[in-house]
């Protein structure tokens, strides 16, 4: 009904192009805390969108809601025009929207190549009885393995293919998770803090990989709390603070938005945030002090 007018509105919202995902009125409360309260959110197709915000802003919770891993109190959202409300996570993935996790979830006691093969969709050998007859799925398995090896070479993990995934370093796990998500061949790939806990040298290469995803025609949404990280690579930035979206726009526009500076950059403009609890508590304390001095002035 109102789809046309909606789309028009979106086009103006992020400077042309259509949107792949639209969310409206999504809320989620934990006890008395309103962790997510998003009026309107959209992801432009074929671009890199960064979802940023200070720790505790509700980014990951929002992420979980969109991918079906958590249920919202209310709200609706569509992917490629189809509603995703109440759709279980595995169906969300099958529709072409695949996520990774902040705390990397590699399957430790499977080898790297088995992790990759698991990502392939529509496998005949994954049905109970046909799985016993190897000739039914061998061809498909070979094709999947070939595709997996291509991806592993791209992410420079091909030498590790027969190692247990649990023996990889933190950064390699991030790469494996990203590569495994690509085995699903998603239209929209959602990366939850791909840079967290990764050393600076690997960060650059990870950023390169994120860019390459866009260059091959995929849409990327990634969560990050370090503003500097997203400036280079994102086309569109959405800023969350205390569960709400406080600003969105191009990286430059967002960075000069006073609302963003208030909510986020003001307190730790140069400080690089990490997600361990200690610095989170510190950051929160700093924020409070900053707010108080603001008031006193």
């Amino acid at each position: 009904m109102g789809a046309d007018t909606m789309n028009e509105k979106h086009e103006t919202a992020h400077g042309g192009g259509d949107v792949i995902l639209v969310a409206d009125g999504v809320t989620r409360t934990f006890g008395g805390l309103k962790a997510v309260d998003v009026d309107h959110f959209e992801i432009p197709r074929g671009k890199i969108t960064a979802l940023i915000g200070p720790n505790g802003a509700g980014k990951t919770t929002f992420f979980n809601l969109l991918t079906g891993f958590d249920k919202p109190d209310e709200g609706s959202w569509t992917f490629n025009g189809q509603s995703l409300s109440g759709v279980p996570p595995y169906k969300v993935a099958r529709r072409g929207m695949v996520r990774t996790f902040q705390l990397t979830k590699v399957l430790s006691r499977l080898t790297v190549i088995e992790n990759m093969r698991l990502g392939a969709t529509g496998q005949k050998g994954e049905r109970f009885l046909p799985s016993v007859l190897r000739f039914l799925w061998q061809g498909q398995e070979d094709a999947n393995t070939e595709r997996a090896m291509d991806l592993l070479r791209r992410f420079k993990l091909d030498a590790k293919k027969d190692d247990f995934a649990g023996s990889l370093s933190g950064g390699q796990r991030k790469l494996l998770e990203m590569a495994r998500a690509l085995m699903v061949d998603p239209e929209l790939i959602m990366l939850d803090e791909p840079m967290a806990g990764v050393n600076p040298a690997l960060k650059q290469s990870l950023l390169g990989h994120v860019k390459s995803l866009r260059d091959e025609g995929r849409t990327v949404l990634f969560v990050e709390h370090d503003m500097d990280m997203v400036r280079d690579i994102s086309d569109w930035v959405v800023v969350m603070a205390q569960g709400k979206i406080v600003s969105q726009g191009t990286p430059d526009a967002v960075m000069s938005d006073p609302a963003v500076i208030d909510a986020y950059l003001g307190a730790h403009h140069d400080a690089e945030l990490t997600f361990d609890m200690e610095s989170q508590i510190e950051a929160e304390a700093e924020q409070e002090i900053a707010a108080e001095t603001e008031e006193n002035r």
Binding site: P89, A93, V98, T100, L107, L118, E141
Partner: peptide, 24 residues
Amino acid sequence: RSPWGRVLKGIREDEDAVRSLGKN
């Protein structure tokens, strides 16, 4: 040794990861 068994082992390791890859 089949893909079916691989899904089971994946679930043993981390069922959310397997969910995120589109498996029921």
